[in-house]
Amino acid sequence: MSVRDTVASPPARYGLLASLYTAQFLGTAFFATALTSILRERGVPLAELGLLQVALMVSALRVLWAPVIDRFGSRRRGHYRSWLLVLQPAMVVALLCLTVLDPVADLDLLLVAGLVTAALSASQDVAVDAIAVRLLRPHQQGVANGIQVAGGYVGSIAGGGVSLLLYDSVGWAPTILVLAALTAVPWWQTLRFTEPAGQRADSTLATRYGALLGLFRQRRLLPWLLVVQPCCWAGIFAAYTLVGPMLVDAGWSLSSVGWVTSIAGDGVAVAGAVVAGALVARHGTRTCLVVFGLCQVAAVLALLPLAFGTAPTVPTGAAILLFKLAYAASATVIGTVSMRLSRPALAGTDYSAMATVGSVVAFGAGAVALALADSAGYPATLTAAAVLAFTGVLAVRWVP
Results as ranks from 00 to 15, higher is better:
2 S>C: 10
10 P>A: 02
10 P>E: 13
11 P>L: 12
12 A>D: 13
20 L>T: 11
22 T>F: 07
23 A>I: 08
26 L>R: 03
32 A>V: 08
32 A>G: 02
33 T>G: 11
37 S>L: 02
37 S>N: 11
40 R>L: 09
47 A>C: 05
47 A>V: 12
50 G>A: 01
59 S>W: 09
60 A>M: 03
62 R>Y: 00
69 I>E: 08
71 R>C: 00
71 R>H: 14
73 G>D: 06
74 S>M: 06
84 L>P: 11
92 V>D: 00
92 V>T: 14
93 V>F: 08
95 L>W: 13
99 T>R: 09
100 V>F: 02
102 D>S: 09
105 A>T: 12
110 L>K: 03
112 V>W: 10
113 A>E: 02
114 G>A: 14
115 L>H: 00
118 A>S: 15
118 A>H: 02
121 S>L: 07
122 A>N: 03
122 A>T: 05
129 D>C: 08
133 V>R: 04
134 R>C: 05
135 L>Q: 14
137 R>S: 07
141 Q>R: 15
144 A>F: 01
145 N>R: 08
147 I>T: 03
147 I>K: 05
148 Q>K: 15
152 G>T: 03
154 V>A: 13
154 V>Q: 00
155 G>F: 15
158 A>I: 13
160 G>V: 05
166 L>M: 14
166 L>D: 12
176 I>G: 00
181 A>R: 09
182 L>Y: 06
184 A>Q: 07
184 A>N: 10
185 V>Y: 02
186 P>Q: 04
188 W>Q: 13
190 T>A: 10
195 E>M: 12
195 E>P: 01
196 P>E: 13
198 G>K: 10
201 A>Q: 14
201 A>S: 13
202 D>G: 13
202 D>Q: 14
204 T>F: 02
205 L>F: 04
205 L>G: 11
206 A>V: 15
214 G>P: 10
215 L>K: 03
218 Q>P: 03
219 R>V: 11
224 W>D: 01
227 V>N: 11
229 Q>D: 04
233 W>R: 10
234 A>M: 15
237 F>K: 01
237 F>Q: 01
237 F>E: 01
238 A>H: 09
242 L>T: 12
242 L>E: 06
243 V>N: 09
243 V>I: 15
248 V>W: 14
248 V>C: 08
251 G>C: 06
257 V>G: 09
260 V>K: 02
267 G>K: 06
269 A>C: 07
269 A>T: 06
271 A>Q: 07
275 V>D: 03
276 A>C: 14
278 A>F: 07
281 A>K: 08
284 G>T: 07
289 L>T: 05
295 C>K: 01
300 V>C: 09
300 V>I: 15
304 L>T: 09
305 P>K: 05
313 T>K: 04
317 G>S: 11
317 G>A: 14
321 L>Y: 11
337 V>S: 04
338 S>R: 03
341 L>E: 12
343 R>M: 09
346 L>G: 08
358 G>T: 05
367 A>F: 03
373 A>K: 00
377 G>R: 10
378 Y>C: 00
380 A>H: 07
381 T>Q: 14
382 L>C: 08
383 T>H: 04
383 T>F: 11
384 A>P: 03
386 A>N: 09
389 A>E: 11
398 W>S: 08
